[in-house]
């Protein structure tokens, strides 16, 4: 693997030491799982599809509200490290291509998103078992995880661009939150596959595990959005004289 890339990722990992921001990825899915499971158990008379019903309760708020905001927070934090204390000067005088420096940031965001998603699925399994679900764990869960993770990478790229452009820590998080809520509307009106914040929810089959989606459309759109937003970020870093301002 490219040594420049490894150096950039390692440097970003070092910067994140003593940063408790990842704790949110641990706490919010836990809260979401707790309330989702409570709701499932209290309405077990109506929610009869076992794992599928439990999944719908776990993911409604998590995918549309919490995850975009969580990813937004993490991306804001990643760029905040450079937005403060004249750090652009040292960041942009590192003898590495700007695209590699960006990939170092993106890798951190993707890494924590994957871990967050794994945690969501682990909680789902534990809560299902504790709720006494006897049927086998749905095999489709692997597809939900992979598609959801791909959709989450799209959100990472969007949020990294926003937090790069906007120096404020909170505004990009607010946009993520609004983007997630709007995603609910977009998904309900069949625009979900074209809306970056909805792709994650569609991939995760949030609130509706029986939803039929086009896998090829999800993959093509996700990869397309990732390329577009990552390119815009790199272009901005290269062309805009951030450190000169």
């Amino acid at each position: 693997m490219n040594t420049s890339y490894i150096r950039a990722v390692k440097a970003e990992s070092l910067k994140l030491k003593r940063s408790p921001v990842w704790l949110a990825f641990f706490a919010l899915p836990l809260i979401s799982a707790f309330f989702g499971t409570m709701n499932y158990r209290l309405n077990i008379g109506v929610l009869k599809s076992e794992w599928y019903s439990l999944w719908s309760q776990h993911t409604l708020f998590l995918c549309y509200l919490f995850m975009p905001a969580l990813i937004g927070t993490y991306c804001s934090y990643l760029w905040r490290l450079e937005h403060t204390r004249h750090n652009w000067n040292s960041f942009l005088t590192a003898p590495l291509p700007v695209s590699i420096l960006y990939l170092g940031k993106l890798t951190q965001a993707v890494r924590v998103t994957i871990l967050g998603n794994l945690w969501i699925f682990l909680l789902f399994y534990i809560c299902g078992k504790l709720s006494g679900i006897q049927s086998p764990f749905p095999q489709k869960a692997l597809e939900w995880f992979l598609c959801g993770t791909l959709g989450a990478v799209v959100v990472c790229c969007v949020q990294l661009l926003l937090s790069l452009l906007i120096r404020s820590f909170a505004i990009p998080i607010g946009i993520a939150l609004a983007g997630g809520i709007l995603g609910l509307y977009m998904t309900n009106h069949d625009y979900g596959m074209h809306y970056p914040y909805s792709i994650y929810c569609l991939g995760m089959r949030a609130n509706n595990p029986n939803m039929e989606i086009s896998l090829s459309a999800l993959i093509v759109n996700s990869v397309g959005y990732i390329i577009v937003f990552a390119t815009l970020s790199v272009f901005y870093l290269r062309r805009h004289e951030i450190a000169a301002n």
Binding site: K15, K17, R18, S19, R85, H86, N87, N89, T93, A243
Partner: peptide, 12 residues
Amino acid sequence: SLIESPSYYGHL
């Protein structure tokens, strides 16, 4: 280089 004020990550 050391441009303007020093760059640093205060939590480290």
